[in-house]
Nucleic acid binder design. Structure first.
Lengths: 365, 365
DNA sequence: TTGAAAGCGATACCAG
DNA sequence: CTGGTATCGCTTTCAA
């Protein structure tokens, strides 16, 4: 089974007087395949102790190892293609450097993608191991428990999975120094950073009010998972109307991302008596705008259409799509924040505004 | 620094006469915070042994535990919010159920997103732990080593990170049962499934030839990372031209995803003498089509424009965008494949065609 | 400068 | 039916 000579007889090197009962030479734990080299294998090949191997490979500064020894160890490691076992290491260390990012859906949109890329890159530079944990179809506590098994030092929830206060508690008790919500949800039972989606809805409505519109539709995507974003945006829209004391009206408009759904909505548009619509984001806005135009409704003449995300594609339509531009925090800044919280978990849950939003008028409003 | 009483003075308690050198009450391994409960804690609270705890919590069938004991254990676990330590478990077990998906960029496009969601979901149902490992800015072997540290049972590379034959070797020697490339690259040194991007370019050109076009531009995105996809698509386009023996011509057209770049390309369009363009995907196609129209070039009159991915948004432009529809393998099928290879790693590296592509004519060609 | 050995947490043997 | 206990791979004192 094992082809490595030194594995064939574990007790070949005569042990003067084995106090403990000799295990009967059976170790077929690994279902098959060549055995994975361990630091002990490296030590054996290099003719040194495991401790020395560890010192060399980790460049331990507290200890001086002769250069020849170092080379022998490195060469042995190279030859065996030795890769340290992260689980064993972190078990021993008592902690990991894992930053866990739960993901349900891969977040949509180039904005989010870029942000994620930045975040990962910055965290890696801070020597964290970034792990996105696929959590599709797990509910709150179930998910939290699954994440906790990995003993991450930090969890940055992008908001696609509902993180409950109990979930946060589970994570913290499993050793997570930082649990950070980055999304539409309010602060949970613990450390959390808020990316307030309401601001987007607010800016959208303010813009439409400035343009003189008073009966405002707000598109609510029917796709699952998006309500975490769309609900707060609607709330923000409502708040903005109230604050404006213009007596304007906000009307939620369910819409799914298909041409049929858009056409159906457009068909009953006249009956709705709206003079503007904030369409959740640019994609829904483009879809709806086309449907409205096809139904003979003039944009922005009869109805203003406003998106969000400032996609390049929105500029390709005629009229060019007005939008709410979202300035996300840079991944680098968030990474720094994660690092700070990890190093000093004591602080109170802070509320950071990680997002700015402002309307960009083009031609559709 | 630490506010925990037992931490305040490590050597304060006088040591009477310990038989063994008493570890001086110091275990500040965990930098601070409440200690994470272990199965030993659960055992203590429940008044049983750790073994029993393990049996109960894992529903070990080979052993019968009385119902009262079970309840005690469960309650203790609940009370302590006990979560098993994945590292310890897999260390003991000698293997993990981790399927590692390296990610550099979050893949763009709804097609890919849906596919990833499906894959994750299906793998979870097969009881794998899906981990996306952020690998931005790691080169081949470096990345492979980092992945290998987690001892994944399988690695499914979506093709954003260049996986070298050595990388594959490293992974396999670290115990990975299945290493699967799913992308434009050819089969590596090991198990690999091929998603041949050339087919897309091929279908695109065939469609344009059928429509009577002979001088065909092929957009090559200048964005980094995309060349892994665009190069094979171009190769496929060339192959299709050759196979057709129409004497048609293919012209690569560098383009970056900005209006300026598109405008610049459109400005020199007449000089290029092309009567069709396959624009990599729908997004680039939409961008270019608008630029061409703004430059007074008729689509499809003067030039046919073809995208790929069949995005909904392509139908919103006028003329509606023709496209190459890509039928990706379902995540479920790939998950099953992963599972099969994991269970029987012996088989030869297979080459599966995981993708179909066909042109969909709308109005732009 | 190097080596021996104690554990980190969970599991699965083998006695009782 | 339950409880010791050896073990996985690695780091880190402590001794030599």
């Amino acid at each position: 089974m094992s082809q490595l000579p030194e594995q064939s007889s574990p007790q070949s090197s005569p042990q003067p007087s084995p106090r403990r009962s000799e295990p009967p030479a059976e170790r077929p734990r690994r279902t098959a395949g060549p055995p994975v080299p361990t630091s002990a294998d490296v030590a054996r090949l290099a003719g040194v102790s495991r401790a020395t191997v560890s010192y060399v490979l980790n460049n331990t500064s507290a200890v001086r190892i002769s250069e020849p020894t170092r080379r022998k160890v490195r060469e042995a490691a190279e030859e065996l293609a030795y890769v340290p076992h992260a689980a064993a290491r972190s078990l021993r260390a008592g902690h990991t450097r894992i930053v866990l990012l739960p993901t349900a859906h891969v977040p949509v949109g180039p904005l989010y993608s870029r942000f994620l890329d930045e975040l990962q890159w910055a965290l890696r530079r801070l020597d964290y191991t970034v792990v996105q944990y696929g959590s599709l179809g797990l509910d709150g506590d179930e998910a939290a428990r699954a994440w906790a098994e990995l003993r991450p030092v930090a969890v940055v929830s992008l908001g696609e999975i509902a993180l409950t206060p109990q979930g946060v508690e589970i994570l913290k008790r499993s050793g997570a120094k930082a649990v950070i919500t980055l999304g539409p949800r309010r602060v949970e039972g613990a450390h959390a950073l808020v990316m307030d989606q309401r601001e987007i809805g607010g800016r959208a409505v303010e813009h439409l009010l400035e343009r003189g519109r008073r009966r405002i539709g707000v598109v609510m995507p029917e796709e699952p998972g998006l309500d975490l974003f769309s609900e707060p945006r609607l709330a923000g829209a409502r708040a903005a109307v109230t604050a404006s004391s213009t007596g304007a009206h906000v009307e939620p408009l369910p819409l799914s991302y298909t041409e049929e759904s858009a056409a159906r909505l457009a068909a009953r548009w006249d009956g709705l008596g709206l003079d503007a619509v904030y369409a959740y984001n640019d994609e829904y806005a483009m879809l709806l705008m086309r449907a409205l135009q096809d139904a003979g409704i003039a944009v922005p003449g009869d109805t203003a259409v406003l998106g969000a995300d400032d996609l390049l594609l929105g500029r390709l339509l005629r009229p060019r799509l007005s939008t709410v531009r979202i300035d996300l925090v840079t991944g680098q800044r968030l990474a720094a924040l994660v690092d700070r919280v990890v190093r000093d978990p004591g602080g109170e849950p802070e509320r950071h505004d990680l997002m700015g939003a402002r309307a960009v008028r083009r031609e559709s409003t």
